[in-house]
Write a protein that binds this DNA or RNA. Structure first.
Length: 423
RNA sequence: GGAGAGGUGGCAGAGUGGUCGAAUGCGCGCGCUUGGAAAGCGCGUGUAGCCGAAAGGUUACCGGGGGUUCGAAUCCCCCCCUCUCCGCCA
C-alpha cells in the first residue's frame, strides 16, 4: 500500500508509476473517494466534539433536573445523527481502503521501461550455458528418473504435482537445503523455522489475500492457509511492531515447504520438476533502514548468486522491466538457471525491494533516532534458493555418459558421495 | 475437548456508567542540586487520522468485532489470546 498522502499531494508521480508498470488504475476515482472521506470525517468529528462538550456539561448537572432531561432529549438527536453519518463514513473508508489496495508500488528510477518479459534487461550472465552437452536431455527423460522422482505415486496418494522423492532423489533435496541454509547462515542470515500455516491477517498483510486467495491451500474449519512461500510467516514476524533502529538491518532465512495451487497455469513449462504444487525453498528476508535498501538489494542478489556459482550452474540475472515487475515491488532481479536438457532458463530466485509498501500494510516500523518518531522499515526478500528447479538443472547439466549425475563439488560434503545414481 | 481466572500506556498496576487518554509506581528525557555520581526535587514522556504555513486545534484508540445508552475502559453478546486445573496426545 502506498502512503495516502503521496496520492493526494503528488498524483502525477503515482500516475507515472502506474504507467510504467502498464497497469490500469483509475486514480481520479480514488482521489474523489478520498475527498468525500475527508469531508465526511470532518462532519462526524464536529458532531462528536459537540457530544463530548454536552457530556461534560451533563456530568455537572443533577441527574433528574429539568436541564438534564432537556439535554438528554437534545443529545439523543445528535447521537442518532452521529450514528447515521458515521455509518456513511465507514462505508467510504472501506471503499477508500479497497481503492488504495489497487494502486501498485512505485517502480524505482533504475527500473527499465518495458511491457513484456522480453523487455527485461539481462543484467549479468555467468557460466557456459551455450556449451554442447551431448548427453543432455530434459530431466524427466533421464532413464530411471521416475524411480527417484515418483510423480505417478504422488498423483495417486495426493494429486498431480505432488511427487515423492526417493533414495538419492530425497538425499539430493536434503543436501541442497542443508547447503543453502549453511551458506545463508554464513552470509549473516539468522535461521528461522516458521509455522507453515498462517492466519488470514498474515496472508492479508503480505498481499496473498484478498487477490490471490485461489492460489493457496486453505484448511477447514480453522481457515488457516498453507504458506506459498516462507516470505509470508517471516515478514509477519514483526507485524504491528516497532523495532529498535539499532537492530537494523535484520537478516533472516527460513526453509519451508511451499504450497501453491497454481490454478490456471498449464503449459509446456509444467513438466517434471519445473512446476509442482509442493516444493522446498529457503527464503531470505531483510528488514532495513530506508536509506540503505538499494545497497541491501544488491547484497541480497549477490548472496543468492553465490549459491548458484558454488553449485557451478550457469545462470543469468534479469533486471525486471516496469511491465514485468510485479504489483508490490519497487525493483526486482530474477535469477534464472540454465537447464541444458530443456535448453531453457528456469527461475530459481526473485530478489525484490518492496521499500515501505509491505511494511505499511503490515505496520512494521522502527523508532528513528533522528526524529524520535516511528518510521516504516523497508523490506526485501529473495529465494536462496528454490530446490526443485536447481535440482532439475543439476540433473540436466551434470548428466554423464554412464547415466549418473555428477554432484557439484560444494555439495559433496552434504550429499556424501560424488555421483547420484538412478539405479 | 471440559472447568475456572484474566487481557488497561515501555513495564507494573488502579479504575465497575459521566469532568478518564486514563491515578500511582518504575523506567525514560530535560533541568535544579553535586567536585562527580547516587539520592532528592521540578517539569516532561503513547499511536494514528483529519484541519492548519506554523503555533496549535480536533477525533479515535483500555485484546478484536458488534450491541445497550444522551454518555462505555466500566454493562450485554460473539471471537481471539494468555494462565491454572482436568482429560487426551507426538
Amino acid at each position: 500500500m502506498l502512503d495516502p498522502k503521496l496520492i493526494r499531494e503528488s498524483p502525477d508521480l503515482v500516475r507515472a508509476a502506474i504507467a510504467k508498470k502498464h497497469l490500469d488504475v483509475d486514480l481520479d476515482a480514488v482521489l474523489a473517494i478520498d475527498a468525500t472521506w475527508r469531508s465526511q470525517l470532518r462532519e462526524v468529528e464536529t458532531l462528536r466534539s459537540a457530544q463530548k462538550a454536552a457530556n461534560t456539561a451533563m456530568a455537572a448537572l443533577p441527574k433528574g433536573s429539568p436541564e438534564f432531561v432537556a439535554k438528554v432529549a437534545e443529545m439523543k438527536a445528535v447521537s442518532n445523527q452521529i450514528k447515521e453519518r458515521d455509518a456513511q463514513l465507514k462505508e467510504t473508508e472501506e471503499k477508500f481502503r479497497v481503492a488504495m489496495l489497487s494502486i501498485p508500488n512505485l517502480p524505482h528510477a533504475t527500473v527499465p521501461d518495458g511491457r513484456t518479459p522480453e523487455e527485461n534487461v539481462v543484467f549479468a550472465l555467468h557460466g557456459a550455458h551455450g556449451e554442447a552437452r551431448p548427453h543432455a536431455v530434459p530431466h524427466w527423460e533421464i532413464p530411471g528418473f521416475e524411480r527417484l522422482f515418483d510423480f505417478a505415486r504422488g498423483a495417486k496418494v495426493t494429486g498431480a504435482g505432488f511427487p515423492f522423492f526417493v533414495g538419492d532423489g530425497a538425499r539430493l533435496v536434503r543436501s541442497l537445503l542443508q547447503f543453502f541454509l549453511e551458506e545463508d547462515s554464513k552470509a549473516g542470515y539468522v535461521e528461522v523455522s516458521p509455522p507453515i500455516f498462517v492466519n488470514a491477517a498474515s496472508a492479508t498483510a503480505t498481499g496473498q489475500l484478498p487477490d490471490k486467495e485461489g492460489q493457496m491451500y486453505e484448511t477447514t474449519p480453522d481457515r488457516l492457509f498453507a504458506v506459498p512461500t516462507a516470505e509470508v510467516p517471516l515478514t509477519n514476524f514483526f507485524r504491528d511492531e516497532i523495532v529498535d533502529e539499532s537492530a537494523l538491518p535484520i537478516y533472516r532465512c527460513a526453509y519451508t515447504p511451499c504450497f501453491r495451487r497454481e490454478a490456471g497455469s498449464y503449459g509446456k513449462d509444467v513438466r517434471g520438476l519445473n512446476r509442482v504444487h509442493q516444493f522446498d525453498k529457503v527464503e531470505l528476508l531483510k528488514w532495513v533502514h530506508p536509506s540503505t535498501s538499494y545497497e541491501e538489494l544488491d547484497k541480497l542478489r549477490e548472496d543468492a548468486e553465490r549459491l548458484l556459482r558454488k553449485l557451478e550452474l550457469p545462470y543469468r540475472v534479469l533486471l525486471m522491466c516496469g511491465g514485468d515487475l510485479g504489483f508490490a515491488q519497487a525493483k526486482k532481479y530474477d535469477l534464472e538457471v540454465w537447464a541444458a536438457g530443456q535448453k531453457r532458463w528456469l527461475e530459481v530466485s526473485s530478489c525484490s525491494n518492496f521499500e515501505a509498501f509491505q511494511a505499511r500494510r503490515a505496520q512494521i516500523r522502527f523508532r528513528s533516532r533522528e526524529s524520535g518518531k516511528p518510521e516504516l522499515v523497508h523490506t526485501l526478500n529473495g529465494s536462496g534458493l528454490a530446490v526443485p528447479r536447481v535440482l532439475a538443472a543439476i540433473l540436466e547439466n551434470n548428466l554423464e555418459a554412464d547415466g549418473r549425475v555428477r554432484i557439484p563439488e560444494a555439495l559433496v560434503p552434504y550429499f556424501g558421495k560424488s555421483h547420484l545414481s538412478f539405479q
